[in-house]
Design a binder for these strands. Structure first.
Length: 443
RNA sequence: GCCCCCAUGGUGUAGCGGUAAGCACGACGGCCUUUCACGCCGUUAGCGCGAGUUCGACUCUCGCUGGGGGUACCA
């Protein structure tokens, strides 16, 4: 089994493309196949080294590895010319200067039931000759048969007048040359498949197994795009999602794996993946669900590993302690700084929190008392801090929150933070007392 | 316009002729609790419509409607 994945080199690895890559990788892993990565670069404008680099980087981040490639489509130009000549010579293709308008005019006079058929000319673009009768059937591993009657197909242009080839031609030739046996890609390619099949047939080449995956839509039902905020793997990464969660989510989005579970590693997904289980419905990208899964993966990370990823994500160092006590409170890497940034950057300015907690009746008194016990505490530690503060609660005859919240606001500036005992302990006695003093200071 | 694909709660899915239509996310309510989370409990909401086929349709067929994709000398 030889599979191939050919992302559009636009720079962003779209979620749909990422899922196609993932499914190809799962299949390759499951069946011991080979995954070939090809770069669609007949369009030189898009396939800049930067764009290709970004795609490769996103794939690497997802931990999707390929066995061969990336192979440049443009690199096989001589071979394309050779096949073109042969098709021209044996009458499977012909040259024509017909334009898109000519095709429209043809349809207008012949009716919609007739695909465009041009008259051979000495020069011009190369069109593939579609048989007048019959149909081309796409046998699709996920959706069955899709039949395309030839009378509805226009003779497709397979090469420009300047000799450069077009996608539908290049992809068919390249897949054949690369010995590709399975083509798993997005549904947007389904309608183009008969053209590719016709090229293969004209070449006398066998057809690979096709599988077209449903598209991924935005919340508005439209095709997912930048407008939706997170249309690419790179954006998800920037938003603090874990690659494990993205892989898990993308896999789940298009196929049922096990009704009893929903959290799967790449290896577990590979064990269960089957094209037959891929759904035919287009799916709507649901960031909420992704966040949910991300939270699960995030919490399953060893503390040191989470710290490492947070440091990489934020570009800050020394996050281990804060990471550990924040782990069960954050869903994405991005959630970390708003919650625990105060450890490093000082208390945030939150006038509302101050007013509500510190200026409330008894707020300052409790804080002052807490300062007193913390100053005396020996030794300094989470357990000791907890007993001391709880003892204070007891003594003052107030609710736990009446003591804890003022302390929280004093050290963090806000009413939300990791556990208060852990936070105070992590901050250290000097810094904790300093912050409390600052909060207590008038004005 | 023409061609192709798709259709289970707001979202993702399970279901493959007989079910009280299951699970998950979300939302809502509650418990837990030092905040926020986590965890736990409960509630909410679904088979697009119309004909068939059948003793019996979410499940099969056809039509309609709706959504999506394609229709480039783009990929």
């Amino acid at each position: 089994m030889r599979l191939r994945f050919a992302p559009s080199p636009t720079g962003a690895l779209h979620l749909g493309g990422a899922r196609a890559a993932l499914y190809n990788a799962l299949l390759a892993r499951r069946h011991g196949g080979t995954l070939v990565l090809r770069i669609e670069d007949t369009d030189r404008e898009r396939s800049t080294p930067e764009n290709v680099g970004q795609i490769l980087d996103a794939l690497r981040w997802l931990d999707i590895s390929y066995d061969e490639g990336p192979i440049s489509q443009a690199a096989s130009a001589p071979r394309h010319a050779e096949v073109l000549e042969r098709l021209l010579a044996d009458g499977h293709a012909y040259r024509s200067n017909a334009t898109a308008d000519d095709v429209k005019a043809f349809k207008a006079t012949h009716g919609s039931g007739h695909g465009f058929r041009g008259d051979p000319e000495d020069r011009g673009a190369v069109r593939l000759r579609v048989p007048d009768a019959g149909e081309t059937v796409v046998h699709d591993a996920v959706r069955g048969e899709a039949r395309f009657a030839h009378v509805h197909l226009d003779d497709p242009v397979i090469a420009r007048a300047d000799g450069s080839v077009l996608y539908n031609f290049a992809v068919a030739v390249d897949d054949y040359d690369a010995g590709i046996t399975h083509v798993v890609r997005g549904e947007d390619h389904l309608s183009n498949t008969p053209k590719q099949l016709l090229v293969l047939e004209a070449m006398g080449a066998p057809a690979p197994v096709y599988a077209h995956l449903p598209l991924i839509h935005g919340p508005d039902g439209k095709k997912l795009s930048k407008r939706h905020g997170a249309a690419s793997v790179q954006e998800l990464r920037a938003q603090g999602f874990l690659p494990e969660a993205v892989v898990n989510y993308l896999a789940l989005l298009g196929a049922g794996f096990d009704p009893e579970r929903e959290v799967f590693s790449f290896a577990e997904l590979a064990e269960r993946f089957a094209l037959e289980n891929v759904t035919r419905n287009p799916a709507v990208f649901d960031e909420q669900k992704l966040r949910h899964l991300n939270g699960i993966w995030l919490r399953s990370l060893p503390a040191e590993e989470l710290a490492r990823r947070l440091e990489e994500h934020t570009g800050r160092r020394g996050l281990a302690g804060a990471a550990e006590i924040s782990q069960e409170k954050i869903q994405t890497l991005e959630d970390f700084w708003p919650l625990a940034g105060f450890f490093f950057d000082g208390p945030v300015e939150d006038a509302k929190a101050r007013a509500k907690v510190l200026e409330a009746p008894g707020g300052r008194e409790r804080l002052a008392e807490a300062r007193g016990v913390l100053a005396e505490l020996e030794p300094w530690g989470t357990g000791g801090i907890e007993s001391a503060l709880r003892e204070l609660v007891e003594r003052a005859g107030v609710r736990p929150r009446d003591v804890f919240q003022p302390v929280r606001v004093a050290i963090a500036g806000t009413t939300v933070s990791p556990g208060i005992f852990e936070s105070v302990a992590l901050l250290g006695r000097d810094e904790a007392l300093a912050r409390i003093d600052r909060a207590l200071a008038p004005g």
